[in-house]
């Protein structure tokens, strides 16, 4: 019973983490039609910012906010320096952002070395849930993920900012005619997606090994969730991450983590082939 409950909690935790990573990705991918292969490295930068600030004696909570803002700013730079030139060349966004990802990863190796850094969680308590003991910090991560999803939905579907941002995406020329500063919205939307990656990295840093390779492990599941769920709607990746994360955790628990990855990726390939637009989507990305 305890085993099953722990498995369920771990699965929920993993699903929510993937949603957290995928959320930033889907904003950039679904809304701006940019495939950001550097998203994993933005995640990495968030984690390293937190580590660096903690080593300097800054409290965790301030580090969390600083990591989010800093990575958001880096996203802004990326948009201005690179992405802006290639909005109309969809496939090239994959290549350019892949180049950025290599550069960021190597930059981190140069500054911090290839080894793993560690950082401490601000909450170390164990909670008793139905008789099973579970780290409270993981529950905090789940709460952050849920808040981010709710906040993003609120921002894009219930505020004037979101309305304008979606208007720019739906019809740039018309939005411009109506007085929406379209370039500003491109920048802000991209920076928002990047900031979410930074937040995710900083939140995850205490419970994983912070090393230069940590980004890729989340990037691929996040991408597959988006493609499985459909990029046309923000709810797509939530569904996709649910399916992918749950299958992964259950297979890993019953078989082995490596085979879980194989099973999940193979399933995702089949799902993408059968529903190219995603389970939630009408036409998919082209």
């Amino acid at each position: 019973m305890d085993q099953a409950l722990l498995l369920l909690l771990d699965a929920t935790n993993y699903v929510l983490v993937i949603i957290l990573v995928a959320m930033g990705l889907v904003i950039v991918f679904g809304l701006m039609r940019v495939i950001n292969m550097a998203h994993g490295e933005l995640f990495l930068l968030g984690a390293y910012t937190l580590v660096l600030l903690q080593q300097a004696g800054v409290p965790y909570w301030i580090g969390l906010i600083a990591a989010t803002l800093l990575v958001g700013f880096i996203g802004l730079l990326m948009e201005e320096l690179v992405i802006r030139h290639i909005y109309h060349r969809f496939l090239d966004t994959i290549l350019a952002t892949w180049g950025i990802s290599i550069a960021i990863k190597q930059g981190v190796v140069l500054l911090f070395g290839p080894g793993a850094q560690s950082t401490t969680a601000p909450i170390t308590a164990q909670l008793q849930i139905f008789g099973a003991s579970y780290p409270a910090y993981r529950l905090f991560i789940m709460a952050v993920a849920l808040l981010v999803v709710a906040g993003t939905f609120y921002l894009f579907f219930r505020t004037r900012f979101g309305l304008a941002a979606r208007a720019v995406i739906a019809n740039r020329a018309m939005a411009g005619c109506l007085g929406v500063p379209t370039r500003t919205f491109d920048r802000l939307t991209f920076a928002y997606g990047a900031a979410l990656a930074g937040l995710a990295g900083a939140v995850m840093a205490p419970i994983m090994s912070v090393d230069p390779q940590m980004g890729l492990g989340f990037l691929i599941p996040a991408f597959l969730s988006i493609l499985v769920g459909g990029a046309g709607h923000l709810a797509g990746p939530v569904l996709g991450a649910g399916l992918i994360g749950a299958t992964d955790s259950v297979t890993a628990g019953l078989w082995s983590p490596v085979m879980a990855q194989v099973v999940v990726f193979a399933m995702a390939v089949v799902a993408i082939r059968l529903f190219p637009g995603g389970l939630m989507g009408r036409g998919g990305p082209r």
Binding site: I35, F90, L91, I94, I220, F223, L224, L227, V258, M259, Q261, V262, F265, A266, A268, V269, I272, R273, L274, P276, G284, P285, R286
Partner: peptide, 22 residues
Amino acid sequence: GRGLQGAQLAIVMLAVAVIAER
């Protein structure tokens, strides 16, 4: 069938490569 387009193909092939390596 419905066929995969550019980016989807790129990422699906990425997944295939990871599966093959594992």
